[in-house]
């Protein structure tokens, strides 16, 4: 039996399928597995960053620093590999560490000084973006063989289709995300925190640890996303992933996570990202439309989803009283 609380996510999945089928009817060559897989290939980094964002939003917070963190990751990776000549095996763990530490520091500020996540992560966003330009104001192109091979390797699937290594990383991240959200204490504490922080304290849950870990996780995810983005772009640049935090938030919300916290699903976020991807694909198939139409459609979608969530939650709370 379908439960009522799954309604937002069902709507998201249905919307994705409708869009994909509509595209398939309108454009020849649209209805193929490879088009679907390309959605993943082109949005792997967004998917990864959106997973961290989902946890943050479920906990009742927000993280605006993720786009800048991706840029910083590409910049640090590129400069260490190209200019300093370090091995990717050192650089990748290092940038992941940087991301996690950065998130952890923001989480600690948010918790211990009781500051709104919005303002702390906004500061984090400026800081990380600014640091990129300390390293270089220009693009650093990467021609390291490891990165090249990560970028170009195609994992072949039966039927002549393929995915990239980034997709594999993203899908593993999704699987881990779902597991953590639903089957670990940390995951459940995040939901409890988003439901009612005061209750979580009084129920004796480790609120401080959970809150800080959520931002650490988001920092880690944005660094991982940065690594994948580096594979994708093969360069480091201070303007990379500009405004990506907002795309990630949009994907999370379209995926059925309530901005007020407490309710949401990683699987929903997956489809939220895929919806953004399918809009882009449709617009590129259309050919004559400017890519800004993606933003327009996403804007409209966001409006309708937020209104839908509002109706859904008010109806729910009015039933109580």
């Amino acid at each position: 039996m379908l439960k009522k609380q799954y309604l937002p996510i069902i709507v998201t999945v249905a919307l994705f399928m409708v869009m994909f089928v509509a595209g398939a009817f309108r454009y020849t060559g649209f209805f193929s597995l490879q088009v679907l897989l390309n959605l993943l290939i082109d949005n792997a980094f967004l998917l990864i960053v959106a997973i961290g964002m989902t946890f943050v939003i479920i906990s009742g917070g927000i993280d605006l620093s993720v786009g800048s963190m991706i840029a910083l990751t590409t910049m640090v990776s590129a400069s260490l590999i190209q200019n300093v000549g370090w091995s990717p095996w050192v650089v990748i763990p290092l940038v992941l560490m940087i991301g996690a530490t950065f998130g952890c520091a923001m989480g600690a500020l948010i918790h211990y000084f009781n500051i709104q996540p919005f303002i702390v992560t906004l500061a984090g966003m400026f800081l990380a973006r600014g640091l990129c330009y300390v390293i270089s104001i220009n693009t650093i192109t990467i021609n390291n063989t490891f990165y090249m091979s990560m970028a170009q390797t195609k994992i072949h699937l039966p039927g002549g289709n393929f995915i990239s290594i980034s997709v594999l990383i993203a899908l593993v991240a999704v699987a881990i995300g779902i597991y953590v959200a639903h089957y670990t204490r940390f995951g459940r504490n995040v939901y409890a925190l988003g439901g009612s922080e005061q209750s979580a304290v009084l129920m004796g849950l480790p609120v401080a640890r959970t809150k800080i870990l959520v931002y650490t996780l988001s920092g880690f995810c944005s660094a991982l996303s940065g690594v994948v983005f580096t594979f994708y772009m093969l360069s480091g640049y201070g303007l990379h992933a500009n405004g990506l935090e907002l795309d990630a938030i949009a994907a999370v919300v379209i995926g059925g996570t309530l901005l007020t916290g407490g309710v949401g699903y990683i699987a929903g976020t997956f489809f939220g990202v895929m919806i953004q991807g399918v809009i882009q694909t449709i617009i590129s198939f259309e050919g004559t439309l400017s890519s800004w139409w993606t933003k327009i459609v996403i804007g409209l979608l966001l409006f309708s989803f937020i209104v839908f969530q509002r109706i859904f939650t008010t109806r729910r709370s009015s039933r109580r009283g």
Binding site: R188, N189, Y191, A192, S196, L205
Partner: peptide, 27 residues
Amino acid sequence: VNLCPNLSVAENIFIGREPRRYGRILW
């Protein structure tokens, strides 16, 4: 009531003390 309205009844009773096997919560 200081419980979490968004979680299930069962989870509200057991959160923080969930029975687990190898870290996996046994729903």
